[in-house]
Amino acid sequence: MILYLMCFALFLVGLYGLLTKRDLIKIILSSAIMGYSTNLFLVLFGYRRDATYAILTPNNSGQAMVDPLPQALVLTSIVIELGITALLVALAIRLYQKYGTFDITKMRSLKG
């Protein structure tokens, strides 16, 4: 249980950063932390005590295995987050070109 609560704490760290930071790079990092906490949460559900990895090899047939599905899901979600982070970094670089700063309080072409 404590592990799940710590995951939630990590999620809140990300959310806090997302809401309070003004630097584009820090916002991207906060968003990434939030994603990692979710992935950790998901992969923890697949864990079984004293179980081996979920791949059939000549040595470990017959033993209890961890649940492989959350691992596959997490791998997919990591790839998705990689894509989103790359896109966010590209946007941050372009915003830096336009404004000469990473500070979001100085970017004011959208309002209302």
């Binding site: 990689l82 790359a86 970094v89 590209a90 670089i93 830096y96 070109q97 336009k98």
Partner: peptide, 20 residues
């Protein structure tokens, strides 16, 4: 794709505008 993403990001001249 992973290599090209970093390559393209490194290609942007952050001082002035340029096209990807």
């Amino acid at each position: 794709s992973l290599f090209l993403v970093v390559w393209v990001l490194a290609d942007i001249d952050s001082a002035k505008g340029g096209d990807l």
